[in-house]
Simulated assay, not measured.
Amino acid sequence: MRRAAIYLRVSTDGQTTENQRLELVAVAERSGWEVVEVYEDAGISGAKGRDKRPAFDRLTKDATRRKFDVVMAWSVDRLGRSLQDLVAFLSEVHVLGVDLFLHQQGIDTTTPAGKAMFQMLGVFAEFERSMIQERVKAGLARARSQGKILGRPGVAQPTRQAVLEAKAEGLSIRKIAERVGLSVGAVHGIVSAP
């Protein structure tokens, strides 16, 4: 028998999760699944991250602990409204081998058709990541073509000179870093430069 976890969420205190609960429990019974835990975030927006939704956070941690085999939710927007957070959650449960049942969308990854739909979601997520990378690269290229210097600012010449003088005095890299106010790595880069 599959172990199911139900996730319920409403955005405002004036709303109730009872309709979601009744329908999902009925689906679990029809499917022969045992509901082992109900996670409920009442009065919390789906746009909030995992750290602001305590029940969703517990659900994710319990998925890692393999406390259930399938996550049930009324709708994809109950899990989250941020595409980035949602895709991360879907990828995480997929890697763990936890199935997903979304009532309103008719997605059930315990079936071959549901698994195919889930894989299509992954394809779209990968496409979105590629598009973001291309936009970032294009933005960097535009900035360079306009003469902007990218990356961290370099160390000013007087500071570089102070580092080299301190090294000539025989101070350790750590002591030099403390004296001139740079990181140990930055000092090491200056003293080891040709």
Rank of each mutant, 00 (worst) to 15 (best):
D62I: 08
K67G: 03
L100C: 08
I173W: 09
A162K: 05
E169C: 13
D62N: 04
Q15P: 02
A73M: 03
S183C: 11
T16E: 12
V36W: 08
Q105C: 08
Q146V: 08
A186K: 09
A47T: 10
G151P: 08
G114S: 08
F56Q: 01
V27T: 09
T111H: 01
K137D: 10
G170T: 10
S192A: 11
Q157F: 04
Q104W: 01
S11M: 05
V187E: 09
S172F: 06
T110K: 01
E126R: 07
S172L: 10
G32T: 14
V93K: 01
R9S: 01
V93G: 00
G151A: 10
Q146I: 05
T111R: 02
S192Y: 06
V180Y: 00
P194F: 03
P194K: 15
Q15L: 09
P194I: 07
E18W: 01
V10I: 11
L150G: 13
S172P: 00
L102F: 02
A4Q: 14
L96T: 01
S145D: 09
I44L: 10
R53C: 08
L96D: 04
S11L: 13
N19H: 08
D77Q: 05
G114H: 00
F56G: 02
W74D: 08
T64W: 02
R21K: 13
R129I: 15
H103Q: 04
G189C: 05
R58K: 04
T12E: 10
G170H: 03
V187R: 13
A42I: 15
G181T: 02
R50W: 04
W74T: 08
L182R: 02
A63H: 00
G147D: 04
A168S: 05
P54E: 10
Q161E: 13
L59N: 09
K167A: 13
R129L: 12
E40Q: 07
A113R: 09
V136C: 00
A193Q: 11
R179L: 15
V187L: 13
G106L: 02
R58D: 03
V35D: 07
S192G: 03
P112T: 10
S11V: 14
L100F: 08
F127G: 12
A177S: 14
G154Y: 03
L83N: 09
D57H: 07
R81K: 05
P54V: 12
K52N: 03
L8E: 07
V35F: 00
D41P: 05
G43F: 01
R179W: 00
I176S: 07
T17V: 11
D57C: 10
A47D: 06
D13L: 06
M117Y: 02
I190K: 02
R9A: 10
I132G: 04
V10E: 02
Q15H: 05
Q161K: 14
